[in-house]
Simulated assay, not measured.
Amino acid sequence: MELPLVVGVDGSEPSLRAVDWAADEAVLRAVPLRVVYASLWERYEGGSLSADLGKPSEEVLAQDVVDHAARRALARRPHLKVTRVVLPEEPEYALVHEGREASLLVVGSRGRSGIAEFLLGSVSLSVAAQADCPVIVLRGSHDKQAVPGTRGRILLGVGEDTTESPAVRFAVDEAGRRGVPLEAVRAWRCPAHESTDHPLMAGEPARLHEERAVEALEWALKDVPADADVRRRTVEGPARKVLADFSRGADLLVVGAERGEGHFGMQLGRVAHAVLHHSACPVAVVPQKVRVR
C-alpha cells in the first residue's frame, strides 16, 4: 500500500510553508500528499459565539484552510495526488494518529496560537515526540522547499546507540533522493576527571575518546552503500551544541529518537529536544523502537 505523506495545517504562514516543503517531499518519494487540519475550537467556543461575532463556523473556516493548502500544493506540484481532511480532534492526537498510516509527517515550527510561540510549538513538539513515523519540523530559515535546497547537504547526528539505526537509513535515503552529500557527525567529550596536566599524559584521554567516536561513527555507517557520498566528522563538544552549529550549513538535520516499548508520552531524548528548539534548519526526527530491559 502506498502510504501518504501527511502535512498538518492551521492556516498560519509556518503551516503553509510546511505545505510547500511537503509537496516537494511527496514528489521526491512518489507518494500522495494528505493535508490535515484538526481542532477542538467548536467544542470549547461553541457555534453560538461564532454567530454572535458574525463569523463563519469553525467547520467552514477549517475547510477553507485545507482547501487553500491543497490548492497551494497543486499549484506548486500540478501532478501530485492530494487528499484533504478536517478532524474535530486535538491537533497533537490527530496528527500522531495519522502518522500510523503515513510515510512521513511534516509540520511547521509554530502555529496560530500565542501559546505555541512560547516553546518550539506545542503541537510540533508533541508530534515529534510521539509519532510512529519520521517527522520533519520546519525549523530555522529554509527556502520553503525540500529540493534542491540552498546548501546542498543533509546533516546526520550519530548518537550513542551504534546498532542499525532507522535515522541513518532515513538520512542516506534523503541525501540520495536529492543527489546531495550526507554529512555524518559524531560528537564526543572527554570527561573532566580524565584530564591531566602531566606533560607525558597531556592529550591522551582526549585522543582515546576521539578514537572511540571514530569507531562508533564507522560502525553506525557500516551498511551505507559504497557509492553514497558520505562525509564523516567527529567533533569535540556537547552533541546538542555541535549539531546546532553544523545545522547552519545544512538543508536538513536528521536525528533519532528512541521509543521504548510500553512507554507513553513524550519520548525524544535530550539531543533531539535541544535541536528542535535551536536548529537553524529543518529537523527530521526518526523514531527507533528499543526494548525495555
Results as ranks from 00 to 15, higher is better:
residue 25 E to K: 01
residue 27 V to E: 07
residue 29 R to D: 09
residue 29 R to Y: 00
residue 30 A to T: 11
residue 31 V to T: 13
residue 32 P to D: 10
residue 33 L to C: 14
residue 33 L to W: 13
residue 35 V to F: 14
residue 35 V to K: 12
residue 35 V to C: 00
residue 36 V to R: 09
residue 36 V to D: 05
residue 36 V to S: 04
residue 36 V to H: 01
residue 38 A to T: 05
residue 38 A to Q: 04
residue 40 L to V: 15
residue 41 W to D: 08
residue 41 W to N: 12
residue 42 E to T: 14
residue 44 Y to V: 14
residue 47 G to S: 06
residue 48 S to K: 13
residue 48 S to Y: 08
residue 50 S to P: 11
residue 53 L to Q: 09
residue 53 L to C: 01
residue 57 S to L: 12
residue 57 S to P: 07
residue 58 E to S: 15
residue 58 E to M: 09
residue 61 L to R: 10
residue 61 L to E: 13
residue 61 L to V: 13
residue 61 L to I: 12
residue 63 Q to Y: 04
residue 64 D to V: 14
residue 65 V to L: 05
residue 66 V to G: 05
residue 69 A to R: 03
residue 70 A to Y: 05
residue 71 R to C: 04
residue 72 R to V: 14
residue 73 A to D: 03
residue 74 L to P: 07
residue 74 L to W: 02
residue 75 A to L: 01
residue 76 R to E: 08
residue 78 P to A: 05
residue 79 H to W: 15
residue 79 H to Q: 15
residue 80 L to E: 10
residue 80 L to I: 02
residue 80 L to Y: 05
residue 80 L to G: 13
residue 81 K to C: 06
residue 81 K to S: 11
residue 81 K to F: 03
residue 82 V to A: 11
residue 84 R to Q: 01
residue 86 V to E: 06
residue 86 V to D: 04
residue 86 V to S: 12
residue 87 L to G: 00
residue 87 L to S: 08
residue 88 P to T: 03
residue 88 P to Y: 06
residue 88 P to S: 14
residue 89 E to P: 00
residue 92 E to R: 11
residue 92 E to W: 08
residue 92 E to Q: 07
residue 93 Y to G: 13
residue 95 L to E: 15
residue 95 L to R: 03
residue 96 V to Q: 03
residue 96 V to H: 05
residue 97 H to D: 14
residue 98 E to F: 11
residue 98 E to G: 00
residue 101 E to N: 15
residue 102 A to F: 04
residue 103 S to N: 15
residue 104 L to C: 08
residue 104 L to D: 01
residue 105 L to E: 09
residue 105 L to S: 01
residue 106 V to G: 00
residue 107 V to W: 10
residue 107 V to I: 15
residue 108 G to H: 06
residue 109 S to R: 15
residue 109 S to D: 13
residue 111 G to S: 00
residue 112 R to P: 06
residue 113 S to H: 08
residue 118 F to R: 07
residue 118 F to Q: 04
residue 121 G to L: 09
residue 122 S to Q: 03
residue 122 S to L: 04
residue 125 L to W: 00
residue 125 L to N: 01
residue 125 L to C: 05
residue 125 L to S: 02
residue 125 L to F: 09
residue 126 S to L: 12
residue 127 V to T: 03
residue 127 V to A: 06
residue 128 A to G: 04
residue 131 A to R: 09
residue 135 V to C: 11
residue 137 V to D: 07
residue 138 L to T: 10
residue 140 G to M: 07
residue 141 S to P: 15
residue 141 S to L: 14
residue 142 H to C: 11
residue 142 H to P: 09
residue 143 D to C: 11
residue 143 D to S: 02
residue 144 K to A: 10
residue 146 A to W: 04
residue 146 A to I: 02
residue 147 V to R: 03
residue 147 V to D: 09
residue 148 P to H: 01
residue 149 G to T: 11
residue 150 T to S: 12
residue 150 T to D: 10
residue 151 R to M: 07
residue 152 G to A: 01
residue 154 I to T: 03
residue 154 I to G: 03
residue 155 L to V: 03
residue 155 L to A: 09
residue 156 L to T: 00
residue 158 V to P: 08
residue 158 V to N: 04
residue 158 V to C: 15
residue 159 G to E: 01
residue 160 E to D: 08
residue 160 E to C: 08
residue 161 D to F: 00
residue 161 D to K: 04
residue 161 D to R: 07
residue 162 T to W: 02
residue 162 T to R: 10
residue 162 T to S: 07
residue 162 T to I: 06
residue 163 T to K: 10
residue 164 E to F: 08
residue 165 S to I: 13
residue 167 A to P: 01
residue 169 R to I: 07
